[in-house]
Computed example of a mutant assay.
Amino acid sequence: MSGMRIVFGLLTLVTIGMIIGALFQLAFIRRLEEASVSGISHWVDDKDAEVLRLGFVKPEVISWSPRIIVLHNFLSMEECDYLRGIALPRLHISTVVDTKTGKGIKSDVRTSSGMFLSPEEKKYPIIQAIEKRISVYSQVPIENGELIQVLRYEKNQFYKPHHDYFSDTFNVKRGGQRVATMLMYLSDNVEGGETYFPMAGSGECTCGGKILKGMSVKPVKGNAVLFWSMGLDGQSDPNSIHGGCEVLSGEKWSATKWMRQRIAS
C-alpha cells in the first residue's frame, strides 16, 4: 500500500511539473506574440534580446521555392545610418565574379558602387551585434559568413538577374559554396530598386517601373531579405536567381552578407 502511495505521489509531482512547465512555455509564447504585435520589447535589460531585436523583428515567408523570408525591422535606423556612414568615403565601382579566374571584374551587369567592411571593422560592437543577429536568424555560424558589403545604387543603376552561388572552383575552395544571403536595406524614399526574383511565385510584380513575372521586394529602410542559394537537397538552387531593379529616383543603399558551407577565409 505504501508503495502505491509513493508511485502516486511521484506521478502527481511529475504531472504538476509538466503543468507548470507548460504554463511557463505558454507565458513565453504569449510574450513573443505581444511583443510582435506591440513592437515593445518585454526583455528589459536582456542584452541578447536587445542584440537580436526580439519584439521588433517580424519574419514573413513570401516563398518556399525558392526560400525567401522578409525580416521586417531587422536593423534599427541608427544601424542603417552607421553602415552608410562607414561606407560612404570608401565607395568604388562594383564588380562581378569572373567565372574563369574567380576574381572581381567590372561589368555592365552591375552598375552600383560599393565597399567591404574590413576584418577590423567586424570587431566593432555595432557590427558584432548585426553579425550575431544575421547568424541567429539564418542559423548559419558567424564564422561562415563573408565580410559585409555595403552598396549604393543611384538613379538608373541596377544589377541584372544572377545567382549568388559560385560557378567557378576558385572561390569554392575558400569556405565552400554560398548557401544563403542576407540583404539589408539602409535607405528609404527610393522609387524602383526592388529586389526581383523571377522564378518565385506565379503572379506578377513591379520592377523598376515595369510589370514582370515573379516576385519583388520593395527596399524599406531597416528591412532585410533572407534567401537561400542552396536547396534542401544540398544542391545549388537555380530558382534563387535574383536581381536589383533599376532605381528610378533617390538612392538605394543596402548591405549584403553572404554565407558559406564552411568557415569563410
Rank of each mutant, 00 (worst) to 15 (best):
T99W: 05
L183H: 01
L52Y: 05
M230R: 01
P238A: 10
V51K: 01
T99L: 11
V190L: 02
Y165R: 08
V140E: 00
E191K: 15
V220W: 07
F28L: 02
G244V: 12
G244C: 12
S240W: 04
R5D: 14
L117F: 14
V44G: 10
K252R: 09
S167H: 14
H162P: 02
I29Y: 06
W253S: 13
N223E: 14
P141A: 14
R152Y: 06
A129W: 09
K210I: 07
S187W: 00
N223Y: 15
L117R: 12
E246V: 05
Q235L: 12
S236G: 07
V14W: 10
L54S: 14
N144A: 07
Y124M: 15
S107P: 05
V97K: 08
I6K: 12
S38W: 06
M4P: 02
I130T: 01
A255I: 04
T195G: 11
Q157G: 06
S112A: 07
L26N: 02
V247E: 00
N73F: 14
S76I: 00
S229A: 15
W253P: 12
V109H: 15
N144H: 15
A129G: 13
K160T: 04
E33C: 09
F116P: 11
G102K: 04
G102W: 02
S41T: 11
S229D: 03
Q149C: 14
G175K: 09
R262C: 11
C207M: 04
E50H: 01
E143R: 03
W258R: 02
F158D: 08
F227S: 09
R53N: 12
S2Q: 13
I134C: 02
S254Y: 11
R67N: 14
R90N: 14
E191C: 10
M1S: 13
I148C: 06
E60V: 08
Y137P: 00
L32P: 03
K106N: 07
E191L: 11
C207A: 13
M1L: 09
E131V: 12
D188M: 00
G192E: 00
E33K: 09
V172T: 10
I62N: 06
